[in-house]
Amino acid sequence: MRPARALIDLQALRHNYQLAREISGARALAVIKADAYGHGAVRCAQALQGSADGFAVACIEEALELRYATLRNPILLLEGFFEADELKLIDQHDLWCVVHSTWQIEAIERTRLNRPLNVWLKLDTGMHRVGLHPAEYREAYHRLMASGKVAKIVLMSHFSSADEPESPRSAEQLATFAHASAGLQAEISLCNSPGLLRWPQLTPRQRPDDWVRAGLMIYGASPFEGPQEQAARLRPVMTLESKIICVRELAAGEPIGYGARFVTERPTRVGVVAMGYADGYPRHAPSGTPVSIDGRRSRLIGRVSMDMLTVDLSDLPAAGLGSRVELWGREVGAGEVAAAAGTIPYQLFCNLRRVQTLYSAG
């Protein structure tokens, strides 16, 4: 069988989730949208169900996948509902939902429910994606509470630049949130992974009954480009690996791969690896992107193709046919590969497909 595979360390996942709770001192939603960032939503949720305060997904389809797998933890719909009819399913399956627009408030007011909703009321503090305008936030809160359809409201927003430590945007967003929510008695949820990892500088108001939303960090990747104290404590959850399926001996001056973009500068041993962009490895990763071969660092050479890529074996005489190649994981950080390819770890994980996924409970 083709040797390309993703190894998922569920013990590392649990470690990273507990780290989120430890450094925040608050309750934590494990964000498992987009199939748990490519790690497998159901398996990751099952691994966390005994400890997670709740899960967060993008939409009701993702939530129902978890409910049909008999997961009973609270589940928050981060995009809320797209049509009023979805409120019946939200009610039936006891889901929590984000409300970010006045039309959603109107839909809640009109809908007959069997139980009051748990609403996370989203404020646009400056990201300008979704969220209520600060001038209408207080009215929206009181309107929902007066509707008789809501059991509890969590006040929330989302940081746009928390992964940029020098940016003033997070402080500005905090000030906007503080002003718009002043006097409203409710739990608060502000921090995503970068915001959480920068605790306590970013959110000094964090309380034990507040909430953080831990996404990328629970999968063991850092949202920061450079070193960060708390991120250094994360454990990679996914190891993407394959094997060398062919070895070539090339003289100096020989081109490798599509477009002949890489030309050998010396006699070169080339390893061909069963991994390509159809598996989710970034096609635009340049020559020099790090890989690990039998536990020793080397580099990608030549352009990534659909099913294969090529690596440099010149300084690894013991490596050859059948050698294990780690594309990212414990030996090569996903952040390193992402930086080399001009992208982010989120995209690496979410683009993964076709490879066999194997789980280890630890």
Results as ranks from 00 to 15, higher is better:
residue 102 T to S: 12
residue 321 L to D: 07
residue 58 A to D: 11
residue 315 D to S: 12
residue 308 M to R: 15
residue 207 R to C: 06
residue 61 E to A: 15
residue 237 V to I: 10
residue 225 E to I: 00
residue 71 L to D: 07
residue 151 A to Y: 05
residue 276 G to R: 01
residue 97 C to W: 00
residue 330 R to V: 10
residue 7 L to G: 00
residue 87 L to W: 02
residue 290 P to Y: 05
residue 327 L to Q: 10
residue 114 N to T: 14
residue 41 A to T: 05
residue 113 L to G: 04
residue 169 R to M: 11
residue 129 R to P: 02
residue 221 A to H: 03
residue 189 S to C: 15
residue 145 M to H: 08
residue 248 R to H: 15
residue 11 Q to R: 14
residue 134 P to Y: 07
residue 225 E to Q: 09
residue 154 V to A: 06
residue 186 A to Q: 10
residue 233 R to T: 05
residue 90 I to N: 00
residue 256 I to V: 15
residue 212 V to I: 14
residue 144 L to E: 06
residue 242 S to V: 04
residue 345 P to K: 03
residue 169 R to E: 12
residue 73 N to C: 04
residue 191 C to R: 05
residue 115 R to L: 02
residue 8 I to A: 00
residue 46 Q to F: 05
residue 52 A to M: 11
residue 87 L to C: 03
residue 309 L to C: 14
residue 98 V to H: 08
residue 275 M to P: 03
residue 306 M to N: 14
residue 185 Q to L: 11
residue 264 T to L: 05
residue 300 L to F: 05
residue 311 V to P: 12
residue 245 I to E: 04
residue 16 N to T: 01
residue 17 Y to G: 01
residue 135 A to M: 09
residue 27 R to Y: 08
residue 190 L to T: 07
residue 303 R to F: 11
residue 326 E to W: 10
residue 271 G to Q: 10
residue 209 D to L: 09
residue 161 S to Y: 01
residue 282 P to M: 03
residue 205 R to I: 13
residue 38 G to N: 10
residue 299 R to E: 15
residue 297 R to H: 12
residue 93 H to Y: 15
residue 359 Y to G: 12
residue 54 G to C: 07
residue 219 Y to G: 06
residue 321 L to N: 03
residue 139 E to M: 04
residue 28 A to H: 01
residue 83 E to R: 13
residue 275 M to V: 13
residue 4 A to S: 13
residue 39 H to K: 03
residue 183 G to K: 06
residue 263 V to H: 04
residue 237 V to G: 06
residue 273 V to L: 05
residue 289 T to V: 07
residue 53 D to G: 13
residue 361 A to C: 11
residue 45 A to V: 06
residue 81 F to C: 02
residue 81 F to M: 09
residue 244 I to F: 07
residue 175 A to Y: 02
residue 337 V to A: 04
residue 320 G to P: 03
residue 21 R to T: 00
residue 162 A to N: 04
residue 199 W to C: 14
residue 261 R to C: 05
residue 102 T to R: 07
residue 356 Q to G: 04
residue 122 K to W: 00
residue 108 I to V: 15
residue 274 A to D: 14
residue 352 L to I: 13
residue 270 V to Q: 01
residue 139 E to R: 09
residue 102 T to V: 06
residue 276 G to Q: 03
residue 277 Y to R: 01
residue 13 L to D: 03
residue 337 V to E: 04
residue 11 Q to G: 13
residue 37 Y to G: 03
residue 78 L to K: 07
residue 110 R to G: 00
residue 149 K to V: 09
residue 340 A to Q: 04
residue 329 G to S: 10
residue 32 I to N: 01
residue 220 G to K: 01
residue 238 M to P: 03
residue 196 L to G: 00
residue 2 R to L: 08
residue 93 H to I: 04
residue 15 H to G: 01
residue 42 V to E: 13
residue 77 L to I: 09
residue 220 G to H: 02
residue 44 C to Y: 11
residue 293 I to W: 09
residue 16 N to W: 01
residue 268 T to Q: 12
residue 47 A to R: 08
residue 333 G to Q: 12
residue 101 S to W: 02
residue 39 H to A: 15
residue 208 P to V: 10
residue 180 A to S: 09
residue 60 I to A: 03
residue 57 V to M: 08
residue 237 V to L: 12
